[in-house]
């Protein structure tokens, strides 16, 4: 009787956190997902079809039109070499998105694997994995990336690798805690009473119930990775000019802040928009999965 009234009284807000995943058809898109898509889809379209836009190419210079105010020809203005800032920004966004999604994917995959391993198998494996995770988590993420980039070099590949390596431990930790909390669920016990194998438990019961929270974390990680890549490139440690990246465009403009504020500020607004939309996406997924989050 004890549990009964505790359960029932709190039922409306204490539903099990892994409420079943509604099929994400259009009617299931909630407000937050829609906000995310309204920002993200146009940006995606613009970057994908940037080549067909009536804009100067990202690398093309025009020394007769340097540091021009934003206008209908150059909506974001031009930089010190007369390059079109919007077209460079769009190219930078493309790169940011590649970085963001690659990092999210890599970090999530490794996190899923090692986190499940740590959570499901004996103490020795768990302790070994978590000790390494703790060591990696001792480094502030940007600093770990800086350290790694300084060794493996600059460019897209190394940057993705460095940022992923900083994120993987976080995902391992998340996945491990999810697995640990699921492991004591009664449905796992029910499966164990009929001698279900570890593999069955993992693939049928544990993995499907951890994917959704991992996705929530992954879209945050994507936003974070985009910010870290921009920071690295801004410090001159990420994507090297003349290849455009949001970070190095802003760095380029820093010297001319007084004369041409638009070079630095406008691409920053774009980063902000992408980060916001990814956060809304994450909140939206969380809400769709957990009725408690709806408020």
């Amino acid at each position: 009787m004890t549990k009964m009234f505790l359960t029932l009284r709190k039922q409306h807000w204490a539903f099990p956190p892994e409420f079943h995943l509604p099929r994400l058809s259009l009617p299931h898109l909630n407000q937050k997902m829609i906000i995310a898509l309204v920002i993200l889809v146009p940006i995606l379209l613009l970057t994908t079809f940037a080549d067909w836009l009536p804009l100067q190419k990202p690398l093309q210079t025009n020394l007769r039109a340097i540091m021009q105010w934003p206008s209908h020809v150059h909506p974001f203005g031009t930089d010190r070499m007369g390059r079109d800032v919007l077209s460079r920004t769009l190219a930078g966004v493309q790169l940011s998105l590649v970085v963001g999604f690659s990092v999210a994917f890599i970090a999530m995959s490794f996190g899923l694997f090692f986190g499940t391993l740590a959570g499901l198998f004996g103490r020795a494996v768990d302790r070994a994995i978590m000790t390494v995770v703790d060591i990696f988590l001792a480094f502030p993420s940007l600093l770990l990336a800086i350290g790694l980039v300084s060794i493996v070099g600059t460019g897209l590949g190394p940057v993705v690798m460095a940022i992923s390596l900083a994120d993987v431990p976080r995902f391992i930790r998340l996945q491990r805690s999810l697995v640990l909390s699921l492991r004591s669920r009664a449905y796992i016990d029910a499966a164990r009473t009929v001698n279900a194998s570890q593999w069955w438990l993992m693939t049928r019961h544990i993995a499907p119930n951890t994917i959704s929270p991992l996705l929530v974390a992954a879209s945050i990680a994507a936003a974070h990775a985009i910010l870290v890549e921009a920071s690295l490139s801004f410090l001159g440690l990420g994507i090297m000019p003349p290849a455009p990246s949001l970070g190095n465009i802003i760095r380029d403009g820093q010297t001319y802040l007084e004369q041409a504020w638009w070079i630095s500020t406008l691409p920053g607004v774009v980063i902000l928009l992408i980060a916001i939309s990814l956060h809304f996406l994450s909140d939206g997924i969380r809400e769709a999965l957990d009725p408690r989050a709806r408020k």
Partner: peptide
């Protein structure tokens, strides 16, 4: 063989099944 009926009807089923 023995089988079990669990206490809490809210957590004894995989919500994704």
């Amino acid at each position: 063989a023995a089988q079990m009926v669990f206490q809490d009807p809210y957590s004894s089923f995989n919500p994704k099944m």
